[in-house]
């Protein structure tokens, strides 16, 4: 029997049971987190695409982003698991400057550094490493930065003060790698450079279109979050993925007409934001089947 500071006595068997219980709780928590993460990525995420310029459609003077919105800037962070789901997630890569060029140098490195090295050759320090940042109703401490433009250097300190750093790190890192993957030179109007957006699906419409949207967006999210970190840019796999996604988009995108994604993909951002601000759905309500509220 082991004495405790408060006078209770722990039986060794009780200690073993407590240890087992603690392990089970930890395992369940970890499993649940991953499940929520994957579920959200595959089923809840609605629109995922790239824009040519980070501020072309998301400029703070033209798009007011208010509650339940998370806008993130790219940074040099390794992907990690996420605990926070919900909210509009927008990632601007801000890779326009010479210091912010993602080189995709995964092939030149090995081992544990491989995942990280395919995102950035070095932290961006010059050029247009700017982007809109950060708003979320769930993270009130950063609400004062809504719509503001910050340099990438200041983002890391911003993240350290907020709770969503894990989620942002995961998304940003994969966004960067997705971009480096897609920069293989293929002319494509939809998968371009600059901005990557994932928003929960809140579209209605016919069942056929809803399912097509979900399939397409699930594939796009898988491209960004799973395939891109695993593929060496410039490789045959990367080439196959790029051509395949282009073909997939060209086939399925014409089906996505109702309830009105604009025909020009570059207008999707503002369209989605307008919808978002009008619908005003609580993000945690999306965790139903296929994200239907």
């Amino acid at each position: 029997m082991l004495p405790t500071p408060i006078g209770l006595r722990w039986h060794p068997d009780l200690l073993r049971r407590s240890a087992v219980l603690a392990f089970v709780c930890f395992y369940l928590k970890k499993t649940f987190s991953y499940a929520v993460y994957d579920h959200w990525l595959a089923a809840e995420a609605g629109v995922c695409f790239f824009q040519s310029h980070p501020t072309s459609t998301m400029h703070p003077t033209t798009a007011k982003i208010t509650r339940n919105t998370i806008i993130l800037l790219s940074e040099q962070y390794p992907p990690t698991r996420c605990n926070n789901v919900g909210g509009l997630l927008i990632c601007t890569t801000g890779l326009l400057g010479p210091g912010g060029v993602a080189t995709g140098s995964a092939a030149s490195r090995s081992g544990s550094r491989r995942r990280r090295s395919c995102f950035w050759s070095k932290p961006p320090t010059s050029g247009l490493n700017l982007g809109m940042v950060v708003a979320s109703g769930r993270f009130s401490r950063v609400l004062d930065r809504v719509g503001s433009i910050v340099r990438l250097k200041s983002v890391s300190s911003l993240w350290r003060r907020t709770e969503f750093s894990r989620w942002s790190a995961c998304c940003i890192a994969n966004v960067c790698s997705a971009r480096s993957l897609m920069e293989g030179g293929a002319p494509c109007s939809l998968i371009g450079r600059g901005m990557f957006i994932v928003v929960p699906r809140f579209f209605g419409g016919e069942e056929k279109n809803t399912r097509n949207i979900m399939r397409l967006m699930a594939a796009l999210n898988v491209l960004a979050f799973r395939i891109a970190p695993r593929v060496v840019p410039g490789s045959e796999d990367a080439h196959m993925v790029r051509r395949g996604m282009e073909a997939l988009l060209s086939i399925l995108k014409p089906d996505i007409t109702e309830p009105g994604l604009p025909p020009d993909p570059r207008q999707w951002t503002s369209h989605v934001l307008e919808k978002w601000m009008g619908v005003n759905i609580r993000p945690w309500r999306w965790l139903g089947k296929y994200g239907l509220p």
Binding site: D237, G244, M245, A247, I251
Partner: peptide, 28 residues
């Protein structure tokens, strides 16, 4: 299944997409 409906409309794109889906399965 969604692509199968488009085989007659755009067989070349569907072929590329089918090829990609195999890669997608292996990578994802």
């Amino acid at each position: 299944g969604a692509l199968q409906k488009h085989v007659k409309d755009s067989p070349q794109n569907v072929l590329v997409a089918f090829t990609f889906l195999g890669t997608l399965a292996r990578l994802a």
